[in-house]
């Protein structure tokens, strides 16, 4: 049974594209057939985060306008044979696509893939409406900041109005040192405010920037963010994985990070 997941946030710059890339890659690494769709028309980015920007021939708008078949526009990932990207158009704008066209396209892709992951643009306008139109479930990305949480709450309200069956919360850029000294809301604070099931917490890890520089999603590697994203992928696929000790015990956490720093390049 295939699932269509929209990755959304309301606010820009909280990590929707990075999350889409990592969740898609992680699921493909688990052997699932995955297609990532960049729905941010005019501001495409998923291709660069995935490192596939040089292989784009056709895009989402071409597919919708019937200029090519879906298969022609899909780019196969370099690393994972079951992972594909449908890039967005860079020259058009969000009004180039309508929600009914998205629903039609997504239902076609649903037949060939286990997961269709839609990377939603920021905002609540047309682009958002297009992205959520064909989705079954949503992954709301937020950071532990007032502005991002406020926007996430608005988005959740809109998703609930669209009667989404499943909405999960992912908290990005968590800084344990700041949580410890009381200068950042903890994961449980954010969950309490937004009242959604938590699918994972990703620490603020400089390796995310490095991975984006290289165009290689870091899911599954030994970095903290890589491990956090791996756990999220398991949970998306329905596996129960214990949460990494995020804000319960910092001392335990520093021990863990210490171990990882020592064994960098190791197997785990």
């Amino acid at each position: 049974m295939s699932e269509v997941i929209v990755v959304t946030s309301g606010k820009g710059g909280v990590g929707k594209t990075t999350t889409s890339a990592n969740v898609g890659t992680g699921l493909a690494a688990m052997g699932k057939r995955v297609v990532l769709i960049d729905t941010d028309i005019g501001l495409r980015n998923l291709d660069v985060v995935m490192g596939l920007e040089n292989r784009i021939v056709y895009n989402l708008v071409d597919v919708v306008e019937g200029k090519c078949r879906i298969k022609q526009a899909l780019i196969r990932d370099k690393r994972h044979p079951t992972l594909y990207l449908l890039p967005s158009a860079q020259t058009k704008d969000k009004t180039a696509v309508r929600p009914d066209q998205m629903i039609k396209m997504v239902s076609q892709l649903r037949e060939q893939f286990d997961y269709v992951i839609l990377d939603c643009p920021a905002g609540i306008e047309q682009g958002f409406k297009n992205a959520i139109a064909g989705a079954d479930r949503a992954l709301v990305v937020t950071t532990p900041e007032v502005s991002a949480i406020r926007d996430a709450d608005r988005i959740i309200g809109l998703l609930e109005a669209e009667e989404f069956k499943k909405i999960d919360l992912m908290i990005n850029r968590m800084r344990l040192d700041m949580v410890k000294r009381g200068d950042m809301m903890s994961a449980s604070d954010v969950v309490e405010i937004l009242a959604l099931p938590l699918i994972g917490v990703v620490p603020d890890d400089e390796n995310v920037v490095i991975a984006t520089n290289q165009g290689e999603p870091l899911v599954g590697n030994s970095t903290l963010a890589g491990r956090a994203y791996q756990n999220i992928c398991y949970r998306v696929a329905g596996k129960e994985v214990p949460f990494m000790e995020f804000d319960k015990s910092i001392s335990f956490w520093t021990k863990v990070t210490g171990i990882f720093h020592k064994s960098q390049g190791g197997t785990k």
């Binding site: 007032v146 949480i149 406020r150 009381g182 950042m184 604070d189 405010i193």
Partner: peptide
């Protein structure tokens, strides 16, 4: 400041 943020939100 995290308490302030929470209350404001």
């Amino acid at each position: 400041s995290n308490e302030i943020a929470k209350d404001r939100l």
